[in-house]
Design a protein around this nucleic acid. Structure first.
Lengths: 339, 339
DNA sequence: CTGAGGTGATAAACCGGTATAGCTCCTGCA
DNA sequence: TGCAGGAGCTATACCGGTTTATCACCTCAG
């Protein structure tokens, strides 16, 4: 017989469905002997719970969702999400909870997905990424009463649980290092201005500038694309007083920037130091290999999964977990300025 | 009231649950007038079917699965999967079917996932990628009677439906082009030897060699990593009779190869032409930008989704859809050989 | 005028689990 | 000896849909 049900097991064991359910879920109500017998029969018939049936009775579906609102074109090259997804799954698989992944165009579509998921009971909770300054998703999720955990930022005045890394400290570490090498003209090619982490990084650069005696420390925002990364670099290197170091908010933009430097005859790291605020194979494929900030994104995802499961178990849970600080991996693209 | 059920709608409309179900699913059994009234009430109460309840009754869960058995580390940089997933979702969203994505370590784990999914009724069907030569997954899926569609290769003597591109023709196009430029020493840095598409590409090169009068046309297999791509390139360029052109089975390896050429003082495209059998931003970020074979992976995924839905609807369906041929995008990394 | 057949609806079973009320013993204590 | 109480189990309702059997009613042909 294909796909045995607990009724089949109950028949074979000569007990009721209820007893089987008790035994399989490890709850009192059956003797140890009976329990053992039922478990053995279930094992032998290779029984597995029907996920829909279980979801209908208990109201949990053992599934959580992740929606990414970015164009698929840029997603591919960002190793961030692949690592994050792996980490999430690692944290979820322990309790055999599955992950629903959806890539959508914009935040509006993302909220629609949450509404659908909530009304169709498709997920027990969701993970929020790319938090923006006044993020409409936070109120939407609260209205839906959908458990959620925010990745990479505080969840709106503490409304949602979160897992975050200290972008500010990380950026300060980069700027401190460049200043220690002797750089005084440092530029920052930032990402989308309405992302919270972009804001935090920009503020860190601005705050550090006077303390380190930087002559100039502009932060220029982009859309995270290679094209704008390149264009912004071209603009910076065309100034009469060029920066001697540039920090890029993503590895893709850093690579694009390196290309522009080569094309304009600016030697790296001789005339220009380059640092990427994110690491991946990409930075190591380059010549020179890029100095980059490495985050343990896999672990990040794993912790986020655990926090989310806690929130699902008890929606009142309010965890704001700070993860391990990222570390600066120095490679060949940074050196003291020419003179 | 939160989350209305069809019973609520039935109450309000003064009809039975059954009538509501008929009306909402557009099947006969209710008059047009009643149907319209029920639909309006459902709309107004913003009713959505409870996915688990529906899955329990009808035995379909409106969800399909994709398991990728590759290390997460290499996944991030491969834009292939991000595009594929987007395309799949585009093909599925029309019928609001969701996609379960899982990244696992190896094929064994992948088959375990299929077993679990089948016994827990978590998915209606699956998409198979990275087909190997004697792929154990095909028999496993047939034993589980889990509908499936194979991407990028024939499904084991026609056992499974498939969506595929003609790797052979594509490789011939590349080699023909290089030969037309005047190259006679062409090397091929291939991927994992047990992948079917790797085999097909190797065979294409071997078959074309005599026709084009190539002096030497070795295919060297790798594990698709940047490290082995670089090592193999180093080996090729250290020979007394260097190849004048190298075709790489992935863009990541091509980029790694370009790095090795630069490091060894071999100018591209002056002394060496480079072609990548796969395209992404990566190839365009390089200097020189790489000539690459572009496939419409998004469309690929969309078509695969449609075929899978057909197979789920009728498991006897046997479609082997050949997708649009990939095109060679010529950029700056290819030129006639030095003399 | 009667019976066949179609239409529009209802009631109830069903899917595969979980949760709960209740029943039957058995034990221990007064 | 009587009874409270708990262990061990059964029967059954329930979750929210879909599906089937049944039925009342109307129309139309014979």
């Amino acid at each position: 017989m294909a796909r045995p049900t607990i009724a089949d097991i109950a028949d074979k064991a000569g007990v009721s469905k209820g007893a089987v359910s008790f035994a399989l879920n490890g709850r009192p109500g059956v003797s140890d002997a009976t329990r053992a017998r039922i478990l053995q029969i279930a094992e032998q018939m290779s029984w597995r719970p029907h996920s829909a049936a279980r979801a209908l009775g208990a109201s949990r579906v053992d599934s959580v969702g992740l929606v990414i609102a970015r164009p698929a074109r840029t997603l591919g090259v960002e190793p961030f999400f692949a690592h994050l997804v792996s980490g999430l799954q690692s944290g979820l698989s322990a309790r055999s909870i599955s992950l629903q992944l959806l890539i959508v165009e914009d935040t509006e579509a993302e909220i629609e997905v949450y509404k659908r998921w909530a009304s169709e009971h498709r997920v027990d909770g969701v993970i929020l990424v790319d938090l923006t300054v006044k993020d409409p998703r936070i109120d939407a999720l609260r209205a839906l009463e959908l458990p959620a955990v925010v990745i990479g930022g505080r969840g709106g005045k503490g409304a949602l649980a979160s897992v975050w890394a200290d972008d500010r400290d990380a950026m300060l570490a980069i700027v401190d290092y460049l200043a220690a090498l002797g750089h005084r003209r440092i530029a920052h090619v930032a990402g989308t201005p309405n992302f919270q982490h972009t804001q935090r990084r920009i503020r860190a650069v601005r705050d550090a500038a006077p303390r380190l005696g930087l002559i100039d420390a502009p932060s220029l925002t982009t859309d995270f694309s290679d094209a704008e990364g390149a264009a912004t670099t071209r603009k910076l290197l065309s100034q009469s007083h060029r920066p001697t170091a540039i920090v890029y908010d993503s590895d893709v933009m850093a690579v694009a920037g390196l290309g522009v430097a080569m094309e304009m005859g600016v030697s790296v790291p001789g005339d220009l130091s380059i640092v990427a605020f994110d690491d991946s194979i990409l930075t190591q494929l380059m010549h020179p290999a890029l100095t980059a900030l490495s985050r343990d994104t896999f672990e990040f995802g794993r912790q986020a999964a655990e926090v989310l499961l806690d929130v699902i178990a008890d929606p009142a849970t309010m965890i704001n977990l700070r993860t391990a600080d990222p570390v600066l991996t120095v490679r060949e693209s940074t050196a003291p300025p020419a003179h």
